[in-house]
Computed example of a mutant assay.
Amino acid sequence: MNKSHKIILFLLSTLNFTHILDFMIMMPLGVFLMPFFKISPLQFSLLVSAYTISAGISGFLAAFFVDNFDRKRILLSAYILFLVGTIACGMAPTFYLLLFARIFAGTFGGLIGAQVTSIIADTFSYEIRGRAMGVIMSGFAVASTLGVPFALFLANRFSWHAPFLFVGTLGFILVPFIAKFLPKMNSHIGTEKKSFLQKTAILSTVFKNKTQRNALFFSFLMMGGHFLMIPFINPFMINNVGYDTDFTPLIYLFGGVASFISANLLGKIADKKGKLKVYTWCLLAAIPLILTITNLPAGTKSYVTLAIFGVWFAASTGRGVTGTAMVSNVVDSSTRGSFQSFNSSMQQLGTGLAAFVAGLIVTKNSQTNALIGYDLVGYLSMFTLLCSLFLARKIFK
């Protein structure tokens, strides 16, 4: 990797940090938002899924025009509007205004992931793309390690509004650096811009191509299976297992450290040993951990819980790195932006549907606030991930 490659990776991983953190902090804030707005687990799951479903819809619609423009311009414009939505979340006085702000942020956040992935795929060859994706995915690890614990500290110290204002402010500090140092990304643009009808033809081609169609469904299952259990981790650990609010940030700290190590290490291993092989290892390692986490008994020793979550975060991140790298290779550069928008849309829809389904399954004991049905969410998560493995071995083997 040369110097320009490293600058691109640093900028995009930092941007990814703020983008992912905005999504991640909503889930552990459930213990603050449910009593503050007096809402049910289902209403809270709507706050989570509203972002991802709106992101999925916008990502799908964006696929019809993004390849006609410089990827940098699309990325920067979407990022600024996403930050506006994030700050609006921090200022929302009611449940419905917060819901609207999440939809607004998700609408533009849905354009970001596809552009980041497309820029990486255009810039780095497939032989080193696992390593590059690992660096980008480390934004997830840093968000878990530093961002989520700090966001929970702000929520405990001030209010639930503070984490959103923190993310929005940090993002606006980053904007001028992206504008200055990220190069133009327009080599994919042909001499003639594709019309809407031509883009529609591309969509038709994607869904007629069995490999590309299956790759999109694979992304849907991969993300949906993972995020089924995510929204209610914090409430379950506090209300069911019995930990206090000062302990739960440590889960994200330990998990984030493990994710950061695995994102970079497993990305390199995947480039050498095979991305499908590493994906398989990570998924099979995660299955018993999902079963354990969603059935964790009250009074479990804190060090045991931290160890379980550390390994689970590491396996989940390795799965995300390798899965994303494999999907990026099923299409060439000229239509990669459109395909990645479709792919990002499927990921967001999978995430949003997973959060909504989890909200339908999980209920709350009105007397103890303990969650009921979280174990069922775990079983559904395991089944969905195993389906993704079956499909991955058909597509990428």
Rank of each mutant, 00 (worst) to 15 (best):
F100M: 12
Y303V: 09
T107D: 07
A315M: 11
F158Q: 06
N16D: 15
L306R: 01
T52E: 12
G378W: 00
Q367L: 11
F150Q: 01
S338M: 15
Y243K: 05
W160Q: 09
M222C: 07
K193Y: 07
L75F: 15
L154R: 02
F254A: 13
M91H: 08
D244C: 09
S334Y: 14
R73K: 15
R213V: 02
L289D: 02
V241Y: 02
L165T: 12
L12V: 10
I372H: 07
L283V: 14
S341F: 15
F65L: 12
F95C: 06
G106K: 02
N234M: 00
V206W: 02
A355F: 04
I361C: 09
V278F: 05
K6D: 00
F17G: 04
R102K: 08
G171A: 12
G224A: 13
G256I: 01
L165Q: 13
L76A: 09
F100L: 15
V278S: 02
L154V: 14
M223H: 04
F140T: 10
G113Y: 13
L376H: 13
S344H: 15
V362G: 01
N264T: 08
D70R: 02
T245I: 13
P28Y: 01
A307R: 02
Y51E: 06
G30V: 05
F166W: 11
S204C: 01
G373P: 14
A143P: 09
L42C: 05
F104V: 15
N365C: 03
K184V: 11
S328N: 14
S49L: 11
A105P: 05
G110Q: 08
A258E: 01
Y379P: 03
F60M: 08
A358N: 06
F218W: 08
L75C: 12
F100Y: 07
N2H: 02
W160I: 10
F23C: 09
R336M: 14
A215K: 08
I74F: 10
F220N: 01
A114Q: 11
I233K: 00
K3D: 06
A62P: 10
E127Y: 01
H161W: 13
F23V: 15
F17R: 01
S328I: 07
S4M: 02
S341I: 14
L21D: 03
A50I: 09
K273E: 07
F181T: 01
V48W: 00
F396T: 05
S333L: 15
K397C: 07
I80C: 13
I120K: 03
T351K: 01
V135Y: 07
W160R: 08
P288F: 10
L12P: 10
L81A: 08
R129I: 03
M229P: 00
V362I: 14
F232C: 00
S302K: 12
T324I: 14
F158M: 12
A105E: 10
Q347K: 12
V66I: 15
T18F: 15
I103L: 09
G225N: 06
T94E: 06
I178H: 04
I20Y: 12
A179F: 13
A358D: 05
T305A: 12
I119N: 00
G350D: 04
S54F: 13
L349K: 01
M137S: 08
L33S: 05
T107L: 13
T324W: 12
G352K: 04
L154N: 02
R393N: 15
A370T: 07
G130K: 00
G267I: 06
G110M: 05
H19Q: 14
K184S: 14
M346D: 00
L11G: 02
V66D: 09
Y243F: 15
A298R: 11
V377C: 06
